[in-house]
Computed example of a mutant assay.
Amino acid sequence: MSYLSLSTWSLHRNLGPLRWTQWDAEARKHVFVETPQPELMKLVDLPVFLAKEGFGALEIGHFHFPSTDDAYLAELKDAFKRAGISFDTILLDYGDISSSDETRRQADLAYIREWIDVAAKAGAKNIRVVAGESEPSDEAALARAIDALLELHEYGQSTNVRVITENFKPLTSKAVNCLAIVNAFDGKLNLIDDFGNFKGESKYEELAAIMPYAVSIHAKAHYDENGMPDLEEYTRCLDLLKQGNYAGAVSLIYDGPGDMWEGINRVRRIVEPYLQ
């Protein structure tokens, strides 16, 4: 059955500073940048709160972790256990495993392996790895991404963490590339299917094409200046869940203006009738 999940991106203005990773091309190393944000709720308190609100799972952006030391990860794992909800996925937003810069690519692979270890210690089932920043027409980049995902997937299995990817960033902005990746794994690599990431006239066909391999749907709407979703467009996306007999996490994504909980609950009321 499908169940309600939440991405911490829907609370990015509420969970304290955002901690971003960047590649310094001149220094040839990773650098870290912090974006100040108020902390209206501690990340470690979120699982219990969501359980009381009827959510079945949570996805956490890597930039929301205030710490990755062992003591904090054990505390977070215990918070999910006490709440009785699933820590579905760490959403790792950084890394270009499709890069032709081999120094950058190897550094990013090492960085991603570190986050797979974090996922294992925190009790996350999955880690979402970005397939790459390269253009979707770059076949050599796609091959590099597939090689890297094969390596990372094997590493993840050794730690009991499932490596997945998403129709996110340029390389997987077309369903044909998402499917090429899946086919390289004989259909055994899973995806996140994000409503907001395919563009153009073929959007709905592409969303439907990758849905059989999805373990999470990012139910993202188009919002106006008041945070109101485009209901017709959103409903057309949600209809694909029933058409595809989707059974898995449906993760609410609200990134519009105003109070974030009001926005989350606004889209929740639209999504809940589609949960099967």
Rank of each mutant, 00 (worst) to 15 (best):
H30A: 10
D101M: 04
T103F: 13
A107H: 08
L207I: 10
L92N: 12
D230V: 09
P66M: 00
G256D: 10
L43A: 10
L241Y: 09
E272C: 07
S137K: 01
K203V: 06
F65H: 10
M211K: 08
L231M: 14
I164C: 08
G156F: 11
V118I: 14
A208E: 13
A208I: 15
F185N: 04
H153R: 14
M260P: 07
D230S: 12
G196H: 02
T103G: 15
L50K: 03
G132H: 03
K81F: 07
S7C: 08
S98L: 02
N265R: 12
T35V: 06
M1I: 15
L152T: 05
L275I: 15
L275A: 13
I90M: 06
I253F: 04
E26A: 08
G200R: 05
E232Q: 15
L15H: 14
E39V: 00
A51E: 03
K242Y: 11
G156D: 14
G187W: 14
D255H: 08
T159R: 06
H62D: 05
V250Q: 02
T235Y: 15
S173M: 05
C178G: 01
D186Y: 07
F32K: 00
Q106Y: 11
G187A: 12
M41V: 04
S67M: 05
E151Q: 15
F185K: 01
A110D: 10
K203T: 11
P136S: 10
Q243L: 13
M228P: 15
S251P: 04
L179F: 07
S5Y: 07
E139W: 03
F195P: 02
E272R: 09
P47C: 04
R13M: 10
M228E: 15
L152H: 04
A27V: 10
C178M: 05
Q276L: 09
I97T: 11
A141V: 02
G132F: 00
G132N: 07
V48L: 07
L252N: 00
P36W: 00
L11S: 04
V33F: 11
A141L: 04
L4M: 12
L240C: 06
E232P: 05
N190R: 13
